[in-house]
Nucleic acid binder design. Structure first.
Lengths: 222, 222, 222, 222
DNA sequence: GATGAATGAGAATTCATTCAT
DNA sequence: GATGAATGAATTCTCATTCAT
């Protein structure tokens, strides 16, 4: 079995795990079900992934990689556009992505919480999480700052080319936009389906409004 | 044992559970630890609360009650102020509250996810499907729309008295502000301690900026 | 449940575990069977003992305690006797003990191998045994030199009172006697039942001969 | 592949297995590791050896064969020497052999325990009950008495030629010497490295003393 | 002859929950 | 009212062995 088939298998398992983890919640998900869903034996799942957490980290890595690939392709295909346009496209993309693949969005937040927990626990003593042994966790650590730097880079571009007029520092702009989008996604997902209405708010209209806000934040008309 | 002692016991248990659930995560938290932290036997904890989920719902109910009490007291004590001022105070209060008591904020989100899961007949909630048997869950259901209506009410006041100039509908304004605040709190909590720096952003400055944005959203200068 | 009942339970479990571990071998022994044998649920076994290894260490501790108690009572009850007589009685006792409770003898040897393995592994890196978390293991560490010092003490007594004439140092005498007895027990157990014949050697006669040798080693007629 | 290459393969596997089994313990040793150590696939290991037990039995057979070859060569090369000298050389050889290749010594003991377990219909052997299907096990059965008879033969020689004066029957002498050596080796291995000190006993001195004892036992000066 | 992916029967362990005292 | 010992279903993870390629 070549490297190709191996990767296919991994993909199959990851897809099955996403399905199970997302529909049942990580806690209620059984490795048995993941295996069944993937159409293989439990042992084989463990052959490819160290344990349940490792598998979850593989999903998380995939999420990061997808986001990064998205951002990179946007930046690549829009070199001629203004910084503001690039940032706007990225924001839009992240929103679409998170809305469509909400569990990736959650996975990324869970990852961040894990990193933070680890830092806290290092001081704390006792508790020792084994997550460090996950190769996927290690890989994520190496790339987890890329999305930030890509977006901050685009914001800086916008400041140079004059398209972004907001005078706050680029990082703060990034983080603010992210808060807005993130909050939107969370509420949107937590409270209902895309095509419905949240507290009598039409979701489509709301999204439009969020984009307007983004636009204005970048233009410093706010 | 009178009703008073009984309530004191419940408070003790809830306080212990908050501590344990938040520091270990609901999933990893053990009822044994809750009981130990509360300084009583596991049996007694089960005497006061049906089960682990029920206990979590008691915390959630407390969170809702605190938020509602906060909002009501703000509205009560600032009747003479403009709608915009009232909304601003509520936003500010919610942000402080969530930042300080992050677990209440999370509890509320978990609750919302559970309600949605129930509607969708999905299993991806933190809780078991028999959560409906929890008295606390039932109680929350009766009040869970109050925070929204209180804030939306204040926004309407502001529209009437001319202090809020944003022409979008009140619900959308509410939901947008909530997204912004929610995103801020989440990032803030997930990524570091309050007094530190997130991606080279000074947290205090950021918070100031978030308030500015809130102000501008309400003023429709955005 | 008082401390007494608790200890009774522990004894019940240990007895069941001895039975299962010894008859099936540690490896093939199932915690399920131990619980069944002890007439209780698996969970309760784990309530009293951290895990399978911990339970084995509890047995080992018991073995050490029995040996030590044996030695101490011999020394206590024979203060007036010569050192040689005391040593002889101890040797005899150990042999009877090991022959009758062979698994205690094995447990003690396994313990020594574990300690040694730990020392080796400390240098080695990687491998990290969790046995250190066993309270029973820690307790054994505190007393594991007692048997040696008791016997060496008796040998020294014998040298002083002139009953032991062997001029080698007391430790070497101890270790030599222990080798002889230990070897005898091992062969005896490994190769057959007490009442039978090993390689055409009558076991009873052989034991007599072993005692003779012990006697002569102490008398330095050898 | 010719018979020669086949035997080379077997030797490679056996060598790898010895390494793994001894360093990790049979129970913890994984066939995966054996294969890796042997530089071949697991499947190939299973092509040459029925199963894990069978492989262990192959090692055990090798141990027996080495011992027997040793004994035979000693007897062969020292035909002119006295029985006592021959026995002494054998004892010395066995001690060196066991000390150096402790795992062979253990393998032999495990084998004996297995035979006994089989007779008693007990399950406390290291191996499964279907060990009888191992060809190596069957082969050992055919030769396992050879070492005894060779040594007993030499003892008889010594009795005839007057070099051995001990009046006990030859088998008992054999078995006693074996107990002494066995105990020495076990303690030596269990408690430390050869060049160190056991309970303040210099190992080299101790070995010398053990040889002296052997000498005296044979001379019936004991 | 080789390979190593695949299997699956097992085993250890956990913990929410109950209930005899 | 309390207690905490007792339960046992549920789940993760292991590894000897097989077999398609």
């Amino acid at each position: 079995m070549g490297i190709y088939e191996r990767q296919e298998r991994e993909k199959t398992i990851i897809a099955a795990a996403e399905n199970i983890f997302f529909n049942h919640g990580f806690r209620n998900a059984k490795m048995d079900d993941v295996a069944k869903q993937a159409g293989m034996s439990k042992g084989l799942v463990y052959f490819y992934f160290q344990n349940k957490d490792d598998l979850y980290m593989a999903i998380t890595l995939k999420a990061f990689e997808m986001i990064i690939a998205n951002y990179q392709s946007i930046l690549e295909n829009n070199k001629h556009k203004t910084g503001k346009e690039k940032v706007f496209l990225i924001v839009k993309t992240y929103l679409e992505f998170s809305n469509e693949h909400y569990h990736y969005h959650e996975a990324i937040f869970n990852y961040m919480a894990t990193v933070r927990a680890e830092l806290n626990l290092k001081a704390d003593s006792l508790f020792q999480s084994d997550i460090n042994e996950s190769m996927y966790y290690q890989k994520i650590k190496q790339i987890h700052n890329l999305p930030v730097s890509l977006v901050v880079g685009a914001i800086k571009d916008g400041m140079k080319d004059g398209s972004i007029k907001n005078s706050h520092n680029p990082q703060m702009i990034y983080v603010t936009l992210w808060a807005l989008i993130t909050g939107f996604v969370k509420l949107n997902i937590t409270m209902g389906n895309q095509n419905e209405t949240i507290y009598h708010v039409n979701v489509h209209d709301w999204k439009t409004y969020i984009f307007e806000l983004t636009e204005k934040i970048l233009s410093e008309t706010i």
